[in-house]
Amino acid sequence: MSESRNQIEVEALARKREWHQAQARLPVREKVRILLELQRQDLPLIARRRVLKAWERPWDVTP
C-alpha cells in the first residue's frame, strides 16, 4: 500500500518537473503572454487583500 503510494508520489513529482521544464522551453513571447495573463488573474485577487500601489496594474501591452 505505502509502496504504491510512494510510486504515485514519485511519478507525480516527475510529471511536475517535466511540466516546469516544458514551460521553461517555451518561446519568450509565449512566456510573456502567460505573464500578462497571470497579471490579469492575480491583481484582482491581490486587490481583495490589500490596496494596490498605483503602478500595480496589468501591463497594457501586447506580448
Partner: peptide, 12 residues
C-alpha cells in the same frame, strides 16, 4: 528570468 526559465509573476 523569462528569457531562461519558466514564466514567473512580476508587476514591474
Amino acid at each position: 528570468v523569462l528569457f531562461y526559465a519558466e514564466p514567473t509573476r512580476t508587476y514591474d
